[in-house]
Computed example of a mutant assay.
Amino acid sequence: MAVLLLLTCLGSTLFMTGLIWLVQVVHYPLLVEVSPGAFGRYHAEHVRRIGPVVGPAMLAELVSAAGLVVLLPPGTPGWLAVAGLIVAGLTWVVTAAVQVPLHRRLALGFDAGRCRSLVRGNWVRTVLWSVHAAIVLAMAWLAMS
Score class of each variant (00 low, 15 high):
Ile20Gln: 03
Trp92Gly: 10
Ala138Leu: 11
Gln99Leu: 11
Tyr28Glu: 03
Ala138Asn: 02
Val3His: 08
Leu71Cys: 05
Val47Arg: 14
Gln24Asp: 05
Gly113Asn: 10
Arg104Trp: 10
Arg48Val: 01
Trp129Val: 00
Leu106Met: 05
Met58Phe: 01
Leu7Gln: 05
Arg116His: 14
Leu72Ser: 09
Glu33Cys: 14
Leu30Gly: 09
Pro101Met: 04
Val94Ile: 12
Ala60Ser: 13
Gly40Trp: 02
Arg116Leu: 10
Ala65Gly: 06
Gly11Leu: 01
Arg49Ser: 06
Ala44Phe: 06
Ser12Pro: 03
Pro56Arg: 15
Gly11Glu: 01
His132Lys: 15
Glu45Phe: 02
Arg49Pro: 04
Glu33Arg: 15
Pro36Lys: 10
His27Met: 13
Ser117Thr: 02
Ala65Tyr: 02
Arg120Phe: 08
Arg41Gln: 09
Gly75Thr: 06
Gly113Thr: 13
Ser64Asp: 08
Met16Gly: 08
Gly11Thr: 10
Ser64Gln: 06
Arg114Gln: 07
Val119Gly: 13
Leu31Lys: 08
Ala60Phe: 05
Val82Tyr: 10
Leu30Met: 14
Leu85Thr: 06
Met144Lys: 09
Pro52Leu: 14
Val26Ala: 14
Val127Asp: 03
Val25Tyr: 00
Met1Ala: 13
Leu118Ala: 11
Leu102Val: 05
Gly75Asn: 03
Ala133Thr: 05
Leu90Arg: 14
Gln99Gly: 02
His132Glu: 13
Phe15Asp: 04
Leu85Gln: 11
Gly89Lys: 02
Val34Glu: 08
Val34Lys: 15
Ile86Met: 13
Val54Asn: 04
Ala133Cys: 09
Leu137Glu: 00
Leu108Ile: 03
Ser145Val: 10
Ser145Leu: 14
Phe15His: 12
Cys9Asp: 10
Val119Phe: 12
Leu108Thr: 12
Val82Thr: 13
His46Asn: 06
Leu85Asn: 11
Ala96Val: 08
His46Leu: 09
Phe110Asp: 00
Val94Met: 07
Gly55Met: 05
Met139Arg: 09
Ala66Ile: 06
Phe39Ile: 04
Gln99Tyr: 15
Thr8Arg: 13
Ser117Pro: 09
Ala96His: 15
Gly89Leu: 07
Ala140Met: 10
Val94Asn: 04
Arg48Ser: 03
Phe15Cys: 08
Leu106Lys: 07
His103Ser: 07
Pro74Gln: 15
Val69Trp: 05
Thr76Cys: 13
Met16Ala: 04
Trp92Gln: 06
Gly51Asn: 09
Ser64Asn: 07
Glu45Tyr: 00
Ala112Tyr: 03
Leu71Pro: 00
Pro52Lys: 12
Val69Thr: 06
Met16Asn: 11
Ala2Gln: 12
Thr76Lys: 06
Val93Trp: 12
Thr76His: 01
Asn122Trp: 15
Leu142Gln: 00
Ile20Gly: 05
Leu7Asn: 09
Val82Met: 13
Leu106Arg: 07
Val70Phe: 14
Ala107Cys: 03
